[in-house]
Amino acid sequence: MITVNNRDELSWHDGMTVQDILDVMGYTYVLIMVTVNGVLVHSEDYSGTKVPDEADVRVIHIMHGG
């Protein structure tokens, strides 16, 4: 089980990547910053970064309306 934004729980599977999490959560916005267990993950590494079980994942959207 992994936690997203300290609130949502997703079931974990082996080989789960950051991009998988974004896809499941429907997080398509472009100005986001992602940390996995406190470590920043760069956007070019979303598909290549695997997320461990029990991870604390934060996806912070920088969005302040128009």
């Binding site: 934004n5 300290n6 609130r7 997080y27 916005y29 934060r58 912070i60 959207h61 969005m63 309306g65």
Partner: peptide, 13 residues
């Protein structure tokens, strides 16, 4: 405009 900070990011628990 706090919708994302609150609802999506859960930064204001």
């Amino acid at each position: 405009w706090l919708i994302f900070m609150d609802m999506v990011n859960n930064e204001l628990p």
